[in-house]
Structures are given as structure tokens and as C-alpha cells.
């Protein structure tokens, strides 16, 4: 399948459920088309001038097809629900029991950028060392990440193809996704819910760091951000939409966020 390589721990469930469901569907499809083509060849007028009014044999028993369809349905339902139970339905407690303490990041989607609020070194939100990154989510390899997501204006959707994560981001509500990245690197984030004219440019990055790198990164943040004016999240909707961005590997992220924000409606 032309699907992105998987770098999460739960993606396995999703990929296999999807593969099995797709294969079963494909099989049914091929079978039906084989029968249909057979019908076209064998029952064309020149080959079969007198139609058979009453069909006989097992093929006419709709009940057999009902039962086989129900079996087919059960296969799909079982694998679908199984995969769902292993991903979306997991509670935070059971995840922390399995993967250890989570890194919690608050995500805010806005036209047309993502803001990521970190709790900083003390692991508590609403304190002085909180900081916000624009369009750059930095996480630690092999550590559970829980994202609490909300939106500042309209509905967005947070999609990381490599991490097998997609969930809508809704104003006035908080939605939650989780993942455990297995591989360091940079992975793109797409917005998958139409959110206005800059929708297609609402791109972002997930940067997965090795544990050592992540710790030193976090330390550097905590030290340099003493003059942080406060997390973005404290500003209610409709207030200032400035993102405080100072950290990035090439120093251009702030400019990138600004460019995305700068997409303004062109008059017709």
C-alpha cells in the first residue's frame, strides 16, 4: 500500500486492520466482477438467444449471499473495532501504566498555524516557565505524548501521516490524541479540515528528538525563556493572535509562522 512509513507504536494495529479490511473488500470486488464479466460473455444475445426465465441452483438463493455478507461484515467490524480499541479508545491512565509518564502538550489550531504550549521544566501548566512554540512540535523518542487540542477560531484537523494520528480540533472543546514515536526525525503535520483560504498552507512539523537531545533542548528552553510574556493559551479567542516563537534550529520558524498568518483574504 502507498501508505507513509509508520513510526508510532500503535500504527501497527491501524495498518493491519486497514490491510485486512482492504484485502477482504478487494477479494469480494474481484469475485463479483469476475461473475459479472462471465455473465456478459455467456449471456449475450448471440450466444444465448433464449433467456432462462427461472434460475435454479445455489446462486439464486439470496439467503446464502446474505449469510456470506454477514460473515464478511463481521470480519470488518471486528478488525475495525479492534484497531479502534487499541488507538482512540485507550484511556490516559492505561497508557501511562504501559508507557510511563506522558509529555503533555496543549495544541491550539488557528488560521493558519499550529501553536504548541509546553508546561516547561516543572511539568505544570499556568506557571512562569510555560512556553509556546509555533508550528514546531518537539517530542522525545519512545516517550508517550498526549496532545490536548483546541481551536482558536474554526475547526481544524491535526493529521500526522507518519504517526497515524488524525483528529479534529474544535473551538470550545478539547480533543485528545496520543502517540509514542519510535524514530527520531522530522515529520510533517497537515490540516485535514477545510479551515479557510490558507488551509493548504497550514503545515507544521513534529520533531522527534533522542532522549538526551530532548533533555538538553528542554533545559535550554527553561533558561532562555525567563522573559516569556506568558503562554498563548491564556489569551481568549478573539484576542491577540501573536505567537511567541524564538526557538528553532535555523531561526526561521517565527518568520514561517508569520508568513502563514499573513495569508489574508484577497478581495475578489
Amino acid at each position: 500500500m502507498p501508505i507513509m512509513p509508520d513510526i508510532s507504536t500503535h500504527g501497527w494495529w491501524l495498518d493491519w486492520s486497514l490491510l485486512i479490511i482492504s484485502m477482504v473488500t478487494l477479494l469480494v470486488g474481484i469475485l463479483s466482477f469476475a461473475l459479472i464479466i462471465l455473465a456478459l460473455i455467456y449471456f449475450r444475445q448471440s450466444k444465448n438467444p433464449t433467456p432462462t426465465r427461472h434460475l435454479s441452483g445455489w446462486i439464486t438463493r439470496l439467503i446464502i449471499l446474505d449469510i456470506s455478507m454477514i460473515i464478511f461484515d463481521i470480519i470488518i467490524a471486528v478488525f475495525s473495532t479492534w484497531g479502534w480499541a487499541e488507538t482512540i479508545l485507550k484511556s490516559e491512565e492505561s497508557l501511562e501504566a504501559k508507557h510511563g509518564e506522558a509529555l503533555t502538550v496543549n495544541v491550539t489550531g488557528r488560521q493558519f498555524f499550529w501553536a504548541f504550549d509546553y508546561a516547561g521544566g516543572d511539568k505544570a501548566f499556568g506557571t512562569a516557565d510555560d512556553f509556546t512554540l509555533g508550528n514546531d512540535l518537539v517530542v522525545e523518542k519512545d516517550r508517550l505524548v498526549v496532545l490536548n487540542m483546541t481551536s482558536g477560531d474554526t475547526i481544524h484537523s491535526f493529521f500526522v501521516p507518519h504517526l497515524r494520528v488524525k483528529y479534529d480540533v474544535i473551538p470550545g472543546r478539547t480533543t485528545r490524541v496520543w502517540f509514542v514515536p519510535k524514530k527520531a526525525g522530522e515529520y510533517p503535520v497537515l490540516c485535514t479540515e477545510l479551515c479557510g483560504l490558507g488551509h493548504y498552507k497550514m503545515l507544521s512539523n513534529v520533531r522527534v528528538l533522542e532522549p538526551d537531545d530532548f533533555d538538553s533542548w528542554l533545559d535550554s528552553r527553561t533558561v532562555t525563556l525567563s522573559e516569556n510574556p506568558g503562554p498563548l493559551r491564556s489569551g481568549g479567542p478573539g484576542q491577540s493572535q501573536t505567537v511567541h516563537v524564538s526557538d528553532s534550529k535555523d531561526g526561521s520558524l517565527g518568520a514561517r509562522a508569520d508568513r502563514n498568518v499573513g495569508v489574508t483574504p484577497r478581495s475578489q
Binding site: 501508505i3 494495529w13 491501524l14 486492520s17 486497514l18 479490511i21 470488518i76 467490524a77 478488525f79 475495525s80 473495532t81 479492534w82 484497531g83 479502534w84 488507538t87 482512540i88 484537523s157 501521516p161 497515524r164 494520528v165 488524525k166 485535514t192
Partner: peptide
């Protein structure tokens, strides 16, 4: 299938 929507929705 619910699970397919995570990738395909």
C-alpha cells in the same frame, strides 16, 4: 470501519 478513518478521513 472506524479505524480506517484515522488514515483515510
Amino acid at each position: 470501519a472506524t479505524v480506517a478513518d484515522i488514515q483515510l478521513h
